[in-house]
């Protein structure tokens, strides 16, 4: 079921991967196309999750809504779905970020119900 939801992201133009991941770096479910999710990427995602959570806390203990890191070829969007679980989208820089974030919000409850 989770895979079906993640597939909604993968069909978006230039999206390469959709991953539900735990804060400790453990991948709960992922779906990808044309990209390898290796240990290095897992570590990168874990670093972003932990660092960003700490950074957001510097704003008077604010909760983290989303992190967006862009490079010249790819970008990564990470959003919390529930306590220690995050949804991560990796896409080419040509992908439509507005569409991706819209789908993230739209499918959050469905993902939570499956965790």
């Amino acid at each position: 079921m989770l895979k079906q939801i993640l597939n909604k992201f993968l069909i978006l133009n230039d999206v390469q991967a959709a991953i539900v991941i735990e804060e400790n770096g453990e991948i709960i479910q992922s779906i990808k196309s044309g990209i390898v999710i290796n240990e290095e990427i897992q570590n990168v995602i874990a670093t972003i999750m932990l660092d960003s959570k700490k950074t957001a806390a510097q704003f008077g203990n604010a909760s983290l809504s989303m992190v967006f890191i862009e490079f010249s070829d790819y970008f990564l969007i990470l959003g919390p779905v529930m306590e220690e679980f995050y949804l991560v989208i990796i896409a080419k820089s040509t992908a439509n970020i507005g569409q991706i974030t819209y789908e993230m919000k739209k499918n959050q409850d469905a993902i939570v119900s499956l965790l």
């Binding site: 967006f68 862009e70 010249s72 970008f75």
Partner: peptide, 8 residues
């Protein structure tokens, strides 16, 4: 690296 955006 192009940018990093933190949303709260």
């Amino acid at each position: 690296f192009v940018h990093m955006t933190l949303q709260i």
